[in-house]
Every structure is written in C-alpha cells, then in structure tokens.
Design a protein around this nucleic acid. Structure first.
Lengths: 338, 338
DNA sequence: GTAAAGGTGTATACCGGTAAAGTAACAGGC
DNA sequence: GCCTGTTACTTTACCGGTATACACCTTTAC
C-alpha cells in the first residue's frame, strides 16, 4: 500500500477485484443486495490499492460530499469556538466532515465562501452571522443559523436572559443600571437582549436615561470605550449589564483603569458565559448560553435536513440561566439611590 | 437575477450569449485571444443569468479547486488563531479560499480529514501538528508545515529563543532556574526549546537538577500542575522558563494559589507572545514568535508550490525576540543563591 | 412448465467544468 | 497564388464518481 503516484480510482479497484465500477461504488456506499463474497473481495481490493474517494467527483455526480460547511466571521471568538466544538462532535457522530470558512465580516469574502459552499457542502451552518446571510444559499443547500436570524435557527432565549440579569441587579438594590448594547442594527440577538433589559426596567418602574444605553459593539475594545463614557457621566450607573462577555470584560478593564472596584463600586453582568469569565478578576456574573449544546443541536438539525428527514422544529430556543460569580453586589449606600 | 431553482451552468450562459461553453469558460478565466465584443457579450450573459461556478466540477476537471486546506488540532489555541489570520490574509491576496479542518488530536479524524484534503485542496497547511503528519499526503498535494517538522516548514528559532530567555533570567541573577517542558517526545519545537535552555545553563556553568525539568504539556492545566510540583520542592526554583505561554499562565496561577508573588518571589518567562500574556497579572515576559507573519509566509510558500514556482527555500526560520514585561525581576536576596 | 418475483451485478449516460486539438477566416511574405 | 502564421473561436474527450435502466440467474407460484 505504498503511496501511489497516480491517485487510485474506482476503475482501478474494480479491475483488481474483477468487478465493475458500479459494484465497487455500491460496496463503498453500503448498498444492499450483493453477495457477501463479492463484498469481501471488493473490500480486499480497496485495501490493497489504498483507494480514497474523490470528494469533488462525488459532489459533482451525486450531490453529496459528506461535508458540512461552517461559515463564521472569525474562529477566535470564544462564542464561536465553543459552538464549533459542539457541532464537530455531532458531525463526527454522523460520519460527516466539518470544514470551517471565515468571512472576517468582509462581504466580498462572504459571497465567495458562500459560493464555494453552495456546491461543495451538503449543508451549511451559519455561526454568528452579521446579518441574514441565509439568502445567499437559496435552495441550493440546507442552512441552519446559530443566532436569531434565519428560517431555521438555534438560539438562546435572549429576552428572558436579559430579564434575568436585570432582575438580578434590581434585586440587589440597584436602580441606576446601564446597558452596553451589541450591534443591534445588524444582529437580532443584540436587539432582543436590549429589549429584554428595557422591558424589565420598565416593568420595575425604572426609567432608563438615554445616555445609559451605550454601544459596546460586542467587543472588548467597544466595551471599554463605552464603559468609560458611562462611568464618567455626572451620574454614573451603579451597575452595568453588558450584551456579551467580551464587552463586559472591556468594561471591567475600564473600571479598573478608573480606580473603581468591582463589585463594591460597580456591579457588572455579562452574557454568554465564555470560559474567560471564570478567570477574570473578579470572576464575572453572567447569563449562560449552553453554547456547546447549541452547536451540537444545530449540527444535528442540519444533518436531519441533509438526510431529508424533516425535523420536528425549525426554531430551537435554549433557556438562559444566570451564573452568579463575584462581580455583582448591592450598591454602596451613598450611590445606590436614584 | 432571482434565485434560479436549477443552478445555472456554463451551457446555459453559452446559449444566452450565442457562443460555445468553452468561450464562456475562457472569458471567466481571463484567457487571452478573444474579441472584445465577444467578451462583453458573454459578460452580459453571465450577469443576466446570475451564473456561479461549481467548484466541485472545476476541481474535478481542472485538478485545481482554489482551496487551501488548513489541518490543525484545534482552532481555539491562540497560537493557531494568530497563524490562521496571517495565512488567511495571504490566501485572500492570492484569490484562494481557505478552509480549516480540525483533528482534535484524534488519529482517526486526522486520517479522514487528510484524505478529504488530498483531493479537495490544492495545498495543505499543517499547523501545529502533533507529529510528522506530512507523509499522509504523499505526493498528492503540496504541504507546508508550521512547526519544526516536515519537508517544508516555517518555524521560529526555538533554540536561540530559549537561550535568550534563559540568559535574561541568568542576567537578573537567577541561578535556580526550572523549565516547564512541552510534549518533547512528539513535538520537535518543544525538544528544541528544552535543548536551548539546557545548553545555555551549561554554558553558564549552572547545573540543572533533574527535578527542575517538569512536563508542562503546552497546556494551562499541565503548567499549573507542573509548577505546583516545582514550587513545593525543598529547594524551589526562583525562576521558571515555560515552553509556551499557556503553560506559563498555568504556572502563574499555581504561584498565586501558593501565595507567591510574581515577580518578587518567582520570575516567569513564557514563549509565543500570545495576546493573553499582555493582560495577565502581572503581564508576562515572553519570547515572541511573529505568529501572524509566520502564517502569512507559510501560506505564500504553499501558494508558490501550488503555482509550480519552486520557492527559494524550503525551511524558513524566523528569529525569536524577548518581550520584557513585568513577570521577571532579580531574585530576592534570601533565595537567590544556589 | 411457464411466468412472475427477487437477488446480484453490469452498461450507459450523465454531473459541470477544463485541456487539447481542430477549424475557419484572414493577413502577410515571397 | 501558395504557404505559413495568427486570431478567434468550436469540437471532442475526458476528470471520477453516481443514478438509472437493464440483463442474467435462481427461486417460487400456480
């Protein structure tokens, strides 16, 4: 089984086994109705020649490549890596390969990669898309979105998650609560979290001044910048609810830089429960999304679609839970009143 | 140009433009020798039909898919993400797509993904392989390795980098210096770093007791475990040189847990200069690898190989530089002598 | 004993592109 | 006017698989 210079094709195997190409193909794909003897003969020939399929040919001829494509802006966002891990587990269990393609939020790249996946992949997982990119794929290939967009999507209950976080802060006695928004113009999840925050504040009879809504942009830098603005207001908030953990970590950094202690001078709640929140100083109270499980569910839903078994539900909403760590506490007496 | 239900093929475009398939193909691929008028007519037909190429067909017929495959154990190691970013820039500049495939250090997955890439990709980038996986690809496809393995590789000067780190600690007055090793049995880079450390210590006339070499396993957990062993020795080291930043961060955690202050009670040097080292407490002194640039160089080398232009060199070794932050200081007077 | 049914394997026609060879028309050299 | 060269396309033959239809041999039904 030394490395053959010319790739081995079905025809080569067929010749060695003394059968037709089709028979070899049928053995490889576990088609029924063939004698055990033939099957074994072909198996031996496969091993003797060291045959490997050509996915391109298979995709062209049979419209299936055993490949799931993941389209995501970046791979180094903790959110994405945890989802990927879950998806990868599900794909492996189903015997499918998983290929990751990054768009860097660049529309040109997005189109290009999407074009590639349209014909190359059996299904596409859209992770944390910046908008509804699903339409690029049309009917060409099934798509499942991780986030609040899309025809078929897996998401967390953003509204309730935000409400839990807000109620937690209210319950500690905070009244001056600010929110670091995500990119709500593009990302539906961000809008849902903001809405959950505002609804809860309103239900509690708490007004939210407009300057208490700042754009944290879902990033560490954005969070730091926005938190600086909030904390240098004439009447700064005593608590901040950030739309994701990365912006919360930025806010934490801003607080430290301004000499504020967390949680004594400022309470802070994030969203996502990425790994880093457990190792910040202090560890961050946050709203947990079961990211790995969501990735796994998304992949399984996609696999169902690929296999043609119409799945029971096309939108799955996972519950959000509060993880209480050390970044939240009652407000100091001299700052707590509104 | 609404979403066509049946994908548009070359033949469709050819019919609309009133030319042959080949002419359309030639226009798409910018072949010379065709009249401007025909070119424009085809262009119009392309736009009118909304044609997109079928990469699978192209790969099959033309034995080129415009895809670079990246094979890596995981995507959430900072080392990997930084390299990926560089590679992605180079690929984009060359008009190639980049697909990432993870192996999770699972030999079965490794083989499977490699098999896929053999025929799917025009070239493969092996990032941080756990061993010499290059042979899997044989002659089927050009391979460039990021690390000390392989026929064509991009790596940092591990030996000198380790020497610089060690000399830095020696220069501060440390004599009892320990090393957190990487998985030197599998990863050549780890072995080279260890050798650089030992050679420098020997050149300085400093003996390294065997218990001062502990396995940090390139991971945070491993680093923490190994550092605990070191720091609870009867004669603990006053400084630790870790084979990578992740194990250094683990050591930092162990030191904190044992009530040791860094750098007053323990000096710590890492390797890689990943982003996290600048935000730990204290920020970590480390040996910098220009990871992004290395990724870019690797991709460019691979692209040269794909294009058939035999590149000038098949091994590129980047210099390592010391980044001095706050985790190193002279040893305390009562602990510094050996 | 013949027909229908079932199991097993083969022949053929594609999938949607590309490479390579072929053709037609025209220009220029001598 | 003939040959050679060039330009601008077209024709043909694949790339390596899969779907479909069908051919062959037994077995079973009546």
């Amino acid at each position: 089984m030394a490395e053959p210079l010319t790739p081995v094709t079905l025809a080569d195997v067929a010749q060695v086994a003394g059968v037709s190409k089709m028979t070899v193909s049928n053995v490889i794909n576990n088609k029924p109705s063939m004698s055990n003897e033939t099957r074994q003969r072909v198996q031996r020939a496969l091993e003797a020649t060291g045959y490997v399929v050509n996915p391109a040919a298979r995709a062209l001829a049979g419209r299936r490549s055993n490949l799931i494509g993941v389209l995501t802006p970046r791979v180094n966002w903790p959110f994405v890596t945890e989802v990927l891990h879950g998806a990868s587990v599900a794909a492996e269990a189903a015997g499918l390969n998983l290929g990751i393609f990054t768009t860097a939020n660049n529309p040109t790249l997005e189109r290009e990669r999407a074009t590639l996946l349209r014909t190359l992949a059996d299904g596409v997982l859209l992770v944390a898309p910046s908008a509804d990119e699903e339409h690029i794929f049309g009917q060409a290939v099934p798509v499942v979105t991780l986030g609040a967009h899309g025809q078929r999507s897996i998401q967390v209950d953003n509204h309730t998650g935000a409400a839990i976080a807000t109620r937690h802060l209210l319950g500690l006695g905070h009244r001056r609560i600010a929110h670091l928004r995500g990119k709500h113009s593009h990302i539906l999840d961000a809008a849902q979290r903001e809405a959950g925050f505002l609804a809860t504040m309103q239900a509690a009879g708490q007004a939210v001044p407009p300057e208490y809504l700042q754009d944290g942009e879902f990033s560490e830098e954005g969070g730091e910048r926005a938190a600086r603005v909030l904390l240098t207001l004439p009447e700064p908030p005593t608590a901040i609810f950030a739309a994701n953990d990365r912006s919360a970590i930025g806010a934490l950094r801003a607080a430290h830089a301004l000499g504020l202690r967390v949680p004594q001078d400022l309470s802070l709640v994030g969203f996502d429960d990425i790994h880093a929140t457990s190792v910040t100083d202090p560890p961050l109270t946050t709203v947990r999304q079961p990211l790995e499980k969501m990735g796994e569910t998304a992949a399984r839903l996609l696999i169902d679609l690929i296999r043609g078994t119409e799945p029971a539900q096309s939108h799955v909403i996972f519950p959000a839970t509060l993880v209480t760590r050390a970044s939240t506490a009652p407000p100091r007496a001299d700052r707590g009143s509104s």
